[in-house]
């Protein structure tokens, strides 16, 4: 209850500051919340951007494909490097180093390679999501207590049983955390990719409104995108909580 009040209070304060600042500024550069409301209404009624549903759907699909690829490749690479001591020692640090590079530097070449359509956005979302998932799997595999593996083997567990009954539960927490971070970064990758250069998708609409200085529409589009991001994170954190309860 107190937490909710404090959250609402902060939101109200931010809105008030925004309103005051927005009214004082040049309306081409900034808009107060009071001006966003009509823009948001026009947007949702498909007056300002009739292709909003198609664009939103495109962005969601790009995120879905990028994330699915990142999960598949991240789990694959993570387990391959985690289970094989030599490969893990050789390549693990390189992956961690690559993760530290600001990923946006790769984007121009991705665009040259994959073109302006969905492929380059998917590639970028994949690239961003891949690293945290891989690194989480690597860290998770290291968390597995070898003694528990030995105990399971003594009781007749083969490789598959050890994997599902010992390894997965041991690393579940770290793994789910990595999957959640990966999702957030895949979303960022796709949206940033669209903003940096695209013909369609939420990023393209944002870019369009921003380029034409339709600041109200721009803010309204950002809010819709924000909802998408927050929604995906709420979903992921729900799964994380469930995993935590299960692993304890």
């Amino acid at each position: 209850m107190k937490v909710a009040l404090l959250r609402l209070g902060l939101l109200a304060a931010l809105l008030a500051v925004w309103e005051l600042a927005g009214r004082a500024a040049n309306p081409l550069l900034a808009v107060p919340p009071s001006a966003v409301v009509p823009a948001l209404r026009d947007l949702l009624l498909l007056r300002s951007y009739p292709r909003l549903p198609a664009s939103l759907w495109l962005t969601v699909r790009e995120i879905g494909v990028a994330y699915a690829l990142a999960v598949a490749a991240g789990l694959g690479c993570g387990f391959a490097l985690g289970m094989n001591r030599l490969l893990g020692r050789a390549w693990g640090p390189m992956i961690a180093a690559l993760y530290a590079v600001p990923a946006v530097v790769w984007y121009p070449s991705l665009m040259l390679f994959f073109g302006l359509d969905a492929a380059s956005k998917i590639a970028f979302g994949f690239l961003l999501g891949f690293f945290p998932i891989t690194l989480a799997v690597l860290a998770g595999v290291r968390q597995v207590n070898p003694h528990l593996v030995l105990v399971a083997r003594a009781y007749g567990a083969g490789v598959v049983v050890v994997f599902f009954r010992v390894m997965l539960p041991s690393m579940l927490f770290t793994l789910v955390g990595g999957l959640r971070t990966g999702l957030a970064l895949s979303v960022i990758g796709v949206v940033v990719g669209e903003i940096l250069g695209s013909k369609d998708g939420m990023g393209a609409l944002i870019n369009h409104a921003y380029g034409l200085l339709r600041t109200g529409d721009y803010v309204a589009l950002v809010l819709v995108t924000l909802l998408l991001v927050v929604g995906s994170d709420v979903l992921a954190s729900g799964l994380e909580r469930r995993a935590r309860r299960w692993s304890e």
Binding site: H147, L148, L150, A152, R153, A154, Y155, P169
Partner: peptide, 29 residues
Amino acid sequence: GPDPRRVATVFQDAGLFPWRTALENVEFG
């Protein structure tokens, strides 16, 4: 190789699975 139908092992470190209850640990084999 391990043959749990004939041989059961108790280790120095109990080696219980932390995500299983006492009962579930006893059930493991």
